[in-house]
Computed example of a mutant assay.
Amino acid sequence: MRALFLSLTLLVGVHHPSLAADAVNGETLAKRWCASCHLVSEDQRKGSDLVPSFASIAARPDFDEDRVATFLLNPHPKMETMSLSRIEARNIAAYIAEQKRR
């Protein structure tokens, strides 16, 4: 039975937090949580002039995806409390990183 479970696990795959973040899910989360202030995509027309766009965050020379994910987990006075899980924060950070490549 254990061998069968291991075989199925290898065939189907198991979601594990240490695997690559999901930028597609990060886009969905960003549009829900971040788009009221940040420009999170090229097709978005409205945002605040007081906060950087995701593209400008990604273009910074010191941009670090892990640091952004950690930043998103901590409460910040100017940002609403989102109560993101670690993987959600990683997904949003991965989505921000993709903005540099566009």
Rank of each mutant, 00 (worst) to 15 (best):
M1G: 14
R2E: 13
A3G: 07
L4H: 14
L4I: 15
S7P: 00
L8Y: 09
L10H: 06
L11V: 15
G13Q: 06
G13D: 04
G13W: 04
V14N: 07
H15Y: 14
H15G: 12
H15P: 08
H16T: 10
H16N: 11
H16I: 06
H16W: 11
S18W: 13
A21D: 12
N25G: 08
G26F: 03
E27N: 08
T28D: 04
T28Q: 13
T28W: 02
R32P: 02
W33E: 13
C37E: 03
H38P: 03
V40E: 07
S41N: 02
E42F: 02
E42L: 04
D43A: 05
R45Q: 13
K46Q: 11
S48M: 03
D49R: 09
D49Y: 07
L50F: 15
V51R: 05
P52E: 12
S56H: 08
S56C: 03
D62Q: 10
F63K: 01
E65S: 04
V68D: 00
T70R: 03
T70E: 04
F71A: 15
F71D: 10
L73I: 01
N74K: 15
N74E: 14
M79V: 15
M79N: 12
E80F: 02
E80L: 02
S83V: 03
L84Y: 05
L84I: 07
I87S: 03
I87E: 06
E88P: 05
A89I: 06
N91W: 01
I92K: 01
A94K: 06
A94P: 07
I96Q: 02
I96N: 02
E98V: 10
Q99C: 12
K100P: 03
K100V: 08
R102P: 02
